[in-house]
């Protein structure tokens, strides 16, 4: 079993997550896709940790998880705030950036 197989699957999951961010309109699904990308990166970290034989990669994946948790908390709070004022969870409805 070649450890690099995990890397391939990591790349695939990352790509799928990236497409999801672009094509899905529901802000919560978009967030989940971002989580998917972070998880894919984490899988790479863990795999490289195994390949290199030390635990640095795992520590880094651990940090990533914490940061992802922070991001989810703040991001979901933002979604709730936007939903309160606009009655919508669609990222397209928050398109005031251009004006």
């Amino acid at each position: 079993m070649d450890a690099s197989n995990y890397l391939y699957i990591s790349a695939l999951l990352f790509t799928i997550g990236a497409v999801g961010v672009v094509v899905r309109r529901n802000a919560i699904v978009v967030f989940m896709c971002i989580e998917l990308m972070l998880n894919a990166a984490n899988l790479s970290f863990v795999t490289f940790s195994r390949i290199n034989g030390n635990l640095d990669g795992q520590v880094m994946a651990f940090f990533t998880m914490v940061v992802a948790a922070c991001e989810v908390v703040v991001g979901l709070a933002i979604i709730v705030a936007i939903y309160r004022s606009r009655r919508s969870a669609s990222v397209d409805d928050a398109s005031l950036l251009k004006r």
């Binding site: 919560i28 969870a89 397209d92």
Partner: peptide, 21 residues
């Protein structure tokens, strides 16, 4: 992730509800 973060996601989903997005 599966326990806390995804449950948070589901919770917010329920809060925000279903819409055109």
């Amino acid at each position: 992730y599966t326990g806390a973060v995804m449950m948070l996601f589901l919770f917010i989903l329920m809060l925000v509800g279903v819409d055109s997005s």
